[in-house]
Design a protein around this nucleic acid. Structure first.
Length: 269
DNA sequence: AAGGATGACAACCGCCTTATA
DNA sequence: CTATAAGGCGGTTGTCATCCT
């Protein structure tokens, strides 16, 4: 037999929470802490599903939540993270203290999406809409089309805080007519840090990428879309399919110390 | 003033993964 | 090992407030 059902579907209340229900839930959580959500409605005296209680607490009642609209810096961070992570709202929310995945998702759909479209940027691919239209017009063999999707560059948004609206993204190079972006022999990345790494050294010297498996770092990389296979081939990083990232840069490695890595790979400049 | 359109966001739904009997 | 519920997540809908005609 499996577990018992999360709640009795009959007699469960739906719809907006009342102040009284909020008070009961907050009192219960503050007194007993977060435990088995299934048990919460009964113990707290609520006619709600445990799932509904969890959602209400995590999205609205948690005392560490920030209220109000996302500020400009938070918005920029959301856009940057979305370019790397896509619609993985919980991962994005994990990088914004006091914000919930639901809140960020709502803000994206109601504000940021429209703002990007007004700026001529596709909110899904983060590419200029014009560039995308051109790509669709020119018919290409499937493999080439697939490559060009993976070859798109994450726009770089100016962070001078000078404007309420963002400037158009700076696309540092065209995505067409180039070898795959992760080809270490070309090292023609848009990100200066990435471009200055001697990737051939990285591939030839397995110890230079051991830093990826120290401590709990691997989990951290997952947050940025990087999922290195333990003991595998370092060239995994250059393969979008296996690494799971559209494009990577210094920020793809989070805020860890990369000095040993850059030293061992003879970083240029 | 009425009512339709739009914006904002809370809440629900359904699916997937993980945990457990 | 299997079946099934819990928990988590992303997509979608519902509701209320405000704006516009």
């Amino acid at each position: 037999m499996g577990r018992q059902p999360c709640c009795d579907k009959l007699g469960v209340k739906k719809g907006p929470w009342t102040a009284e229900e909020d008070r009961k839930l907050v009192n219960f959580i503050l007194t007993h802490g977060q435990c088995c959500w299934r048990a919460v409605p009964k113990l707290a005296g609520l006619r709600r599903c445990g799932k509904s209680c969890r959602l209400r607490w995590t999205n609205y009642l948690r005392p560490d939540l920030k209220r109000g609209l996302l500020n400009e810096a938070e918005e920029r961070l959301v856009i940057d993270l979305h370019a790397t992570l896509g619609n993985r709202w919980s991962k994005i929310a994990a990088r914004l203290p006091g914000r919930t995945d639901n809140e960020i998702k709502n803000h994206w759909n109601t504000h940021i999406k429209k703002k990007l479209i007004r700026m001529g940027i596709d909110p899904v691919t983060h590419k200029p809409l014009q560039e995308q239209a051109n790509e669709q017009v020119s018919s290409k063999p499937n493999e080439q089309a697939k490559f060009e999707v993976s070859n798109h560059k994450t726009p770089i948004y100016p962070c001078d805080g000078s404007s309420d609206n963002f400037s158009s993204p700076i696309i540092e190079s065209s995505s067409t007519g180039k070898s795959p972006p992760f080809d270490p022999n070309i090292s023609n990345f848009d990100d200066p840090w990435t471009n200055h790494i001697r990737w051939e050294t990285f591939l030839e010297n397995p110890s230079s990428w051991n830093f990826m498996f120290e401590g709990d770092r691997q989990e951290g990389y997952g947050e940025f879309g990087l999922c290195p296979p333990a003991g595998g081939d370092p060239s995994w990083l250059f393969n979008r399919e296996s690494s799971g990232v559209e494009s990577f840069s210094r920020s793809s490695f989070g805020d860890i110390d990369m000095s040993e890595f850059t030293r061992s790979t003879n970083i240029r400049s």
